[in-house]
Design a protein around this nucleic acid. Sequence first.
DNA 1: CATGAATGAGCTTTCATTCAT
DNA 2: TATGAATGAAAGCTCATTCAT
Lengths: 210, 210, 210, 210
Amino acid sequence: MNKREVQASVKDERLVQKRRDQMIKGAVALFKEKGFHRTTTREIARAAGFSIGTLYEYIRTKEDILYLVCDSIYDHVKEQLEENLDHKQGTLESLKVGIANFFYVMDELQDEILVMYQEVKSLSKDALPYVLKKELEMVAMFENMLHKCVENGELELSEKQIKIIAHDIFVQGQMWGFRRWALRKLFTLEEYIELQTEFIFKGLGVKRDG
Amino acid sequence: MNKREVQASVKDERLVQKRRDQMIKGAVALFKEKGFHRTTTREIARAAGFSIGTLYEYIRTKEDILYLVCDSIYDHVKEQLEENLDHKQGTLESLKVGIANFFYVMDELQDEILVMYQEVKSLSKDALPYVLKKELEMVAMFENMLHKCVENGELELSEKQIKIIAHDIFVQGQMWGFRRWALRKLFTLEEYIELQTEFIFKGLGVKRDG
Amino acid sequence: MNKREVQASVKDERLVQKRRDQMIKGAVALFKEKGFHRTTTREIARAAGFSIGTLYEYIRTKEDILYLVCDSIYDHVKEQLEENLDHKQGTLESLKVGIANFFYVMDELQDEILVMYQEVKSLSKDALPYVLKKELEMVAMFENMLHKCVENGELELSEKQIKIIAHDIFVQGQMWGFRRWALRKLFTLEEYIELQTEFIFKGLGVKRDG
Amino acid sequence: MNKREVQASVKDERLVQKRRDQMIKGAVALFKEKGFHRTTTREIARAAGFSIGTLYEYIRTKEDILYLVCDSIYDHVKEQLEENLDHKQGTLESLKVGIANFFYVMDELQDEILVMYQEVKSLSKDALPYVLKKELEMVAMFENMLHKCVENGELELSEKQIKIIAHDIFVQGQMWGFRRWALRKLFTLEEYIELQTEFIFKGLGVKRDG
DNA sequence: CATGAATGAGCTTTCATTCAT
DNA sequence: TATGAATGAAAGCTCATTCAT
């Protein structure tokens, strides 16, 4: 269940990938502006640079596009995160850097995050699990970091505490995107990261954060 | 700008309120199931127990219904919260109770919260500010509680810390609703409240909670 | 077939007349502004000063209102014309005055004329003949005048000539109403009357008018 | 401001013209029977031989159809008139032929004329000027003819007389269409033309018409 | 007699999807 | 493979008319 296959009429895999990239790019821009439901397939086709007929050579339903978009965003985020992942995991310092990195990525991809955030619920019962699974994988990255810190004796946390704090961190990252209408007026990104990190670290029971 | 008036053709205020209540109830159920865009006005009318013609005697556009729903949810939540608001504000104990109350309300109204959470973005530029304002008012309730604790010398927090933690608490409450697909498998409501409260209180720098 | 009865639920004849007058007045104003089809029965009721329920106590269908309006306009025009009808009929002078009078009435009632002109075609096959009959009666007034002039030896015209010229005069009068968008820029009412009278009298073969 | 462009989704200009012709033809027939407001877009689509969806590929609103119809009628009339325009303009003979031609065209296109006559007022404030302008252009054709006769010394008329008589001729032509319910019972087309021409020529002050 | 809430048929318009070229 | 014209189900909304009060 790692990927939900989206059927294409076209056989050439390379072409399929290329066309889908075009169409995801166009779709994200449009969804950001007007949401999934208010965006028409014609508009997506036009934004992607080809005709409506061609669009339907690479997908089967409009919802496929939403799935492709969500999927691509997750891949993008995950890739970014893994790239920046500290190799000295298990230290508080590396946890701190990990959190900051995550927040930076969320800021960078804020439009995509917002889109995905608002539109996942439009995914069919069919496609939803694949997307939620990816979300859990990302939460698991933080669980992992926390785990390693516990193993290293840097932190003292129960399993449940790890779980909930991983979720909290993850949601705080998303928050920066989906509550920007409020948060931007109060904090710069750097302030936000600093304040949240401080809050988290105290919450973790760390006496002095580095 | 306290309320955005939704125009009705019917004059009898009491009837308007009654019919709108029916309609909100039906709409929430439907939005929960299929979202705002996939729900038709006819379905809402039927769920409310009257005809499509009657529906439009009480609103002007479909979006009015969404606004009415969001508005009513906020009123409901706020009412619940204020009702349970501790009178010995300014103590850590009262803060703790306040947070727990909030989480309980969020659990009780989880369907409504979920709906509102997913659909606010469908509100027009026109109606959105009214709803966001209400959201900020609720965040302000937590800011207030924190403020009083600071004034009483129970906590030591900067303005910015107060702001961000109020947002964090608020989002943690919502989280229980919008991430229930994940959280329910991990925690009971009581566990969730306990763990989050512990996390928050540590984050606030409280040595011993309770 | 002198009148097409419009059924009312209310028995009191005086009241029926009063209410209908109110509603005709309101309807003319509305039809003038937006035409019959774009005017709603509710608007007519409001303009008439009573409720939609009351409106339907005095008519059976929306089309009845149109019939009532047309009928009333014709009565109005005819009344005006007969009032001003010269008693020395049969002279060219009296014909000239009659034409001028007609044009003045058409100017005075131009809004009503325009409304009726544009909306008669919306009358049902049922009501139309009654209205057309009235129109012919008015044309007949000019035929009469012309006849008398012929009998008096003032003019020399065949039956067919009389008929067509009566129609021409009548349409020239209406023209001032329904082509006002063009004519007003070119002539004052007085100029229009003078020029048209001159044209008609020459067309009648009169060597020297007036 | 020579044409108000009606937007089409379809690009192929030839196809657009073809489909619009189908649609105009169907619409004229329906408007004639029941008027613009009582005709539904579905009926027009069916009459034109395609689906409602296809209809809307070639127009944007129902009113566009009315504009297209009016526009096409004017073009048709003008084309017919110009085709038959005498080259020896400036003689009374050519004027007489011109008038007769106009009346013949009005008879030929009587359905279209009637439709347009009754429905122009349903055009939006936006489209109306384009149509009225065309009407004035047609009136101007008669002004032209009269002018040339004056220049040639065949007639003696002031500017204002020319203007009003051009309007009169034009309206007499339309009359044959919009008052046919009365005129047909009295005259054949030939009689009508003969009588009106005689009337006009006398009105012009011509002693003996050719 | 007067009221106005209720009704639902029917309207215009949109848009995902197909398929012949 | 690519195109875009054609389709029609389905949506939001209106409004003439009724009828219980």
